Amino acid sequence: MKPLIEAAILDLCSRSSTMLPTRMVIADLGCSSGPNALTLVSIAVQAIHSHYLQFVQPPPEVWVLLNDLPHNDFNTVVQSLVTLHKGNDPVVVTGVAPGLFYERLFTSGSLHLVCSSNSLHWLSKAPGVLTSNKIPAYDIDEHARLERLPIVFEAYEQQFRKDFTLFLKLRAKEQVPGGRMVISLPGRRSDQLASELCHLRETLARILRIMVIEGVIDKAKFESFYVPMHGPSDEDLRVIIQEEGSFFIGEMRVHDPRSGVDNALMVPSWFAIMMRAVFEPISVQHFGDVMDEFMACTEQRWSQPGSLEEEVAGNPLVMLVVSLTKA
């Protein structure tokens, strides 16, 4: 996302040849609270600083707004905000905005740049057509699961379309004319089978299915577990953006985030930790504290020779990165 954020800042700063902006507002939606919470806004602030140095002009007043769900650890986030006020960096005014990004978060026409990394695959809710009709997203019986797969996929796809369309409409209201947005989320390539579910969600289901067979979790609870997550294809994303109409697509990139990673790191424990980081809160809420058993089952699943390599090869991890301009 870094080069796309830098390009967006350059575009915002270069629109007028006679007067540079005196105020810029940047928002990160889904900032989380760990070491990466300030990564995207820090890139943007540094890009603004570098651009103004070229023109030997005073830096603008920069507002940085960080959003995540209300239960996010904003105390830790606020403590780390001091790093944005170092040295000769632009004047930075910071704030937090707890809330769901499928709702209005900011005042109309206030945002210049919106960033969101690895967050928009989370849906506002599990598909209602599944939950209301008690259609399991997963099933212990493999034959029944495969038969139901197209119905489940369609339900998740429609929920994502509804949520992402709403997200675009809301952000368009909050952005200035010509505002920019750079987002990334896990998904799939357009040439992957449409019947394939989100890879991470499918991997989670396989692990939980083993835990059901071993008696760790209840079968009925497993079949009533709906993870509100969907990974669209790049073409899905393009169609939704074009149909909604609030933004122009500047650039779209599709890449494997595991490319270039040292193979020595690709061990069962690393994948187990990744799965825990993504799914622990929602799993504990539904099944209770079974994470020790979950970790053991996950590592055991991939401890057989060749199993991890087969998992990686058969389920490519794809990240979609999109740069948008408000129409």
Rank of each mutant, 00 (worst) to 15 (best):
M1Y: 13
K2I: 15
L12T: 04
S17F: 13
P21K: 01
L29Y: 07
L29H: 04
G30I: 05
C31D: 07
P35V: 01
P35W: 10
L40K: 02
P58Y: 10
E61W: 08
N72W: 15
V82F: 07
V96N: 03
P98V: 07
F106M: 06
S117T: 15
N118G: 05
N118D: 09
S119C: 12
S119V: 15
P127I: 11
G128H: 10
T131R: 11
T131P: 08
I135K: 09
R148K: 11
I151D: 05
E157L: 09
E157Y: 13
Q159C: 10
K162E: 15
V182S: 00
R189L: 08
Q192H: 10
E196Y: 14
E196S: 03
C198F: 14
C198K: 02
L208N: 02
R209H: 05
G215K: 11
D218P: 03
K221V: 12
Y226I: 15
V227E: 02
P228L: 14
M229A: 11
I249R: 06
I249F: 10
E251N: 09
L265G: 00
M275W: 06
A296R: 14
C297P: 07
G314L: 10
N315A: 05
P316E: 14
M319W: 13
L320R: 06
V322R: 01
T325S: 07
